[in-house]
Amino acid sequence: MRPTMVAALAKPGRLDRIAIALSGLCIVHCLATAVVLGLLASAGGLLGAPIIHEVGLALAMILGAVALGLGVMEHGFLLPVSVGALGLGVMAGALGLPHDGSEALYTVIGVGMVALGHRLNFLAAD
Results as ranks from 00 to 15, higher is better:
residue 115 A to S: 11
residue 99 H to S: 13
residue 32 A to Q: 03
residue 20 I to N: 12
residue 81 V to T: 15
residue 6 V to S: 14
residue 71 G to T: 06
residue 100 D to I: 13
residue 101 G to F: 03
residue 71 G to C: 07
residue 16 D to Y: 06
residue 115 A to M: 07
residue 47 L to Q: 05
residue 100 D to S: 13
residue 122 F to Q: 09
residue 27 I to K: 08
residue 97 L to E: 00
residue 82 S to E: 06
residue 87 G to N: 02
residue 31 L to Q: 04
residue 112 G to N: 07
residue 91 M to T: 10
residue 28 V to A: 10
residue 105 L to F: 13
residue 83 V to K: 02
residue 82 S to M: 09
residue 113 M to V: 08
residue 12 P to R: 09
residue 11 K to T: 10
residue 95 L to W: 01
residue 1 M to A: 14
residue 106 Y to V: 09
residue 97 L to S: 04
residue 40 L to N: 05
residue 123 L to Q: 10
residue 52 I to R: 13
residue 109 I to Q: 09
residue 123 L to G: 03
residue 122 F to S: 09
residue 82 S to V: 10
residue 17 R to A: 15
residue 44 G to R: 02
residue 48 G to P: 01
residue 105 L to D: 12
residue 36 V to Q: 12
residue 35 V to R: 00
residue 87 G to R: 02
residue 65 A to P: 02
residue 45 G to T: 07
residue 39 L to N: 04
residue 124 A to V: 02
residue 47 L to K: 05
residue 98 P to Y: 08
residue 91 M to Q: 15
residue 65 A to Q: 11
residue 12 P to K: 10
residue 83 V to I: 14
residue 117 G to I: 04
residue 98 P to F: 06
residue 69 G to I: 13
residue 74 E to K: 15
residue 95 L to E: 03
residue 38 G to A: 06
residue 95 L to D: 03
residue 8 A to K: 08
residue 62 I to T: 11
residue 43 A to W: 11
residue 56 G to I: 02
residue 52 I to V: 15
residue 116 L to K: 04
residue 91 M to C: 14
residue 80 P to T: 07
residue 16 D to I: 10
residue 43 A to N: 07
residue 91 M to L: 14
residue 112 G to E: 06
residue 45 G to Q: 11
residue 55 V to T: 11
residue 92 A to K: 02
residue 37 L to H: 11
residue 93 G to F: 01
residue 95 L to M: 03
residue 90 V to W: 09
residue 14 R to I: 14
residue 38 G to M: 05
residue 25 L to I: 05
residue 9 L to W: 09
residue 85 A to S: 08
residue 62 I to S: 11
residue 34 A to K: 05
residue 100 D to P: 11
residue 81 V to K: 09
residue 94 A to R: 00
residue 120 L to S: 06
residue 7 A to D: 10
residue 21 A to H: 03
residue 123 L to I: 07
residue 95 L to G: 01
residue 103 E to W: 06
residue 93 G to V: 03
residue 36 V to I: 15
residue 1 M to N: 09
residue 44 G to V: 02
residue 56 G to C: 00
residue 9 L to A: 11
residue 23 S to L: 12
residue 35 V to M: 06
residue 107 T to M: 13
residue 52 I to W: 08
residue 46 L to H: 04
residue 7 A to I: 05
residue 70 L to K: 15
residue 85 A to G: 02
residue 99 H to M: 13
residue 95 L to R: 02
residue 29 H to L: 15
residue 12 P to F: 01
residue 4 T to K: 08
residue 48 G to Y: 01
residue 69 G to M: 09
residue 14 R to S: 10
residue 29 H to S: 13
residue 116 L to T: 13
residue 8 A to F: 07
residue 4 T to M: 08
residue 16 D to V: 10
residue 74 E to R: 14
residue 92 A to V: 02
residue 10 A to G: 12
residue 105 L to W: 10
residue 107 T to N: 12
residue 90 V to M: 12
residue 86 L to T: 10
residue 25 L to K: 01
residue 96 G to K: 00
residue 3 P to F: 07
residue 38 G to L: 05
residue 116 L to H: 00
residue 25 L to V: 01
residue 97 L to M: 07
